[in-house]
Amino acid sequence: MSHIFYISAVIAVAATLLVVTRTHTVHALLYLVVSLLAVAMVFFTLGAPLVAALEVIIYAGAVMVLFVFIIMMLNLGRHAVERERAWLAPSAWVGPTILCLVLLAELFYVVALGGGAEAAEAATVGPKEVGQALFGPYVLGVELAGMLLLAGLVGAYHLGRREALGEGAEEGPQ
């Protein structure tokens, strides 16, 4: 199990290095998704399956989709067709695909080893313990996180709405 940890860690660091050094936003985003998937694998090998699933669903899923939306919105209208053609070139997706294939091979290896429960470390902290801790001693923190998310929602809506009102707001006092 530990060599899976080390392979995933190397993939995570390599993908993150590539994120920081890319010049193109979409390429960097692909590597960032790979990095987050690798970190999810690391969590799984550390005996934290719930957090691994959340990393995939929320980080690599929801947050990255937000980034993709914004990048697509920023690039609107500027010779979009050539851009899309350039993005579909092999150089854009070969690197992330190779790293993802290594992760996929690890996944198959884990499944072949006998599935999650047996393959993970003996000291697995499952969803049940985490849920009990969340809604036991940490219930105030959960409420605060809910408040924070609500504030984030309102703030994002407010910032996005002022843009929709037009340029007239630019002259007014901020």
Binding site: L54, A62, I70, G141, G152, G160
Partner: peptide, 23 residues
């Protein structure tokens, strides 16, 4: 893992506001 939960919520709120600022 509970702390990771809170970090996750913070990151989600931060990225929503941050991307609105980018726009």
């Amino acid at each position: 893992q509970v702390m990771f939960f809170f970090i996750l919520a913070t990151a989600a709120a931060e990225v929503a506001v941050g991307l609105a600022l980018v726009l």
